[in-house]
């Protein structure tokens, strides 16, 4: 999915926090650690929104005398931790992605631009495929008068755990199915 400057979901995706470790002392930035007026010490680890930490991580203290060093280093956010990856590998459908991050796949995409993590990338793609099929099933069942689909507790649980992209997918599946039936119905009338 491409995102534009004005894309509301892209902006909200960028607001998600990433663990960021500062690599040098910065006197004026104490307020980031809720301690305004104090020096932000090197090695301090903070959860900063992606829009801030990304740009800090890619800029470096380049100079002719000392080897260039990043201002900060990033870690994988907890929502993409190995524990979550294992759960997704075991059973993609049983993970509540929304509880991990509202824009889970959006965050994953952005993070993978910064990290070389083939494993995470593969797990995300595989789980997306598995879950997309499930979402499509649910969306078409809801369209047909909710028989079975919403009634089973398992389905409700699963649908509640969708992230924003998946909710969008669900909506599109549902709407397109409906539009198709309306169109077929009109064809029959004539």
């Amino acid at each position: 999915m491409s995102s534009s400057y004005y894309d509301i979901d892209a902006i909200l995706t960028d607001a998600q926090k990433v663990p960021t470790t500062f690599e040098l002392d910065i006197p004026a930035l104490g307020y980031l650690d809720n301690a305004a007026g104090h020096t932000l010490k090197s090695g301090t680890r903070l959860d900063l929104p992606l829009w801030l930490s990304e740009m800090l991580a890619v800029s470096s203290t380049a100079s002719s005398t000392t080897p260039s060093k990043s201002l900060v280093t990033l870690d994988l956010p907890p929502s993409l931790a190995p524990r979550v990856m294992n759960a997704l590998k075991a059973d993609p459908k049983s993970v509540d992605l929304r509880a991990l991050a509202q824009h889970f796949y959006g965050l994953g995409e952005r993070i993978l631009e910064l990290f070389e993590e083939d494993e995470v990338c593969n797990v995300l793609m595989a789980s997306w495929r598995k879950r997309a099929a499930e979402i499509s099933d649910h969306a078409s069942q809801v369209g047909q008068g909710g028989r079975g689909g919403m009634a089973s507790g398992d389905g409700v649980e699963f649908l509640r755990g969708l992230d924003e992209w998946e909710r969008d997918l669900f909506r599109r599946c549902h709407d397109s199915g409906k539009a198709m039936r309306v169109w077929m119905g009109e064809v029959k009338k004539n």
Binding site: I26, L32, L52, M55, S63, L71
Partner: peptide, 19 residues
């Protein structure tokens, strides 16, 4: 490059404004 801490402060200010 002579004062990376200040440069970082400026960068954070700028990024916040941009956001």
């Amino acid at each position: 490059s002579a004062d990376p801490a200040t440069a970082c402060t400026l960068l954070v200010d700028h990024l916040c404004m941009r956001r």
